[in-house]
Design a protein around this nucleic acid. Sequence first.
DNA 1: CCGTATCCTGGCGGATACTG
DNA 2: CAGTATCCGCCAGGATACGG
Lengths: 116, 116
Amino acid sequence: LEEQALIPVVPFKNCPIRISLGVLGKKWTMLIIRDIGFLKIGRFNQILRTLPGLTPRVLSMRLRELEKNGIIRQIEVQSSPKQVRWGLTRKGRDTLPILMSLIAFGSRWYSDFVRR
Amino acid sequence: LEEQALIPVVPFKNCPIRISLGVLGKKWTMLIIRDIGFLKIGRFNQILRTLPGLTPRVLSMRLRELEKNGIIRQIEVQSSPKQVRWGLTRKGRDTLPILMSLIAFGSRWYSDFVRR
DNA sequence: CCGTATCCTGGCGGATACTG
DNA sequence: CAGTATCCGCCAGGATACGG
């Protein structure tokens, strides 16, 4: 009996992993969620400062995507001076286990390089 | 007292999330690990078949990267006919919680679109 | 402070053919 | 079957400037 016969080989177009990565898999996205969700860093320029290499253009795009996907929302808005703070939604909080497992893996196998 | 004063703002160059994503964050990588680790689909053309859109070139590149990073290894090799099977290493098995959390998130929030 | 508008380029990855 | 070799298009994302 063939081993692979035990596993129905279907194209997993709608695999939950693939779908999750469609939202979360883009460059910078997870790190932005880390800032907003973990570190409670929710201001635009603050996020920019904690993520060297990230440009305002890309941050703006990611925030819009995450907002549209219901993962973050503006929890504090005021004008003059314009002030915004981003926070996680209920759905956004459900991404934290993903970050946790990434931290666990990285800390375990790359402890030499991990500063925090 | 400023809120952000409570959080030391440092550039997280060596954040474990960033490091983990450096290895696992590339396109197709997580799905390849899903095949090898979860579904026990460890043959080259089999992986190709389960992941529509993935080309042999990219699969080859990803396998080399994962092998170099100690996440997968060849667990079965023979020639004539050439036969290879890929499997997870100890380190590779430690990535499964990441996949689990991606599945949990996707299944919960995109149940309509998730077929399996 | 919080973004958007413009411009531009490098390299990721898709297509295809080929080999042991 | 399990890959490698070549070629190439394209767009994600970086640089920079600007505006409310």
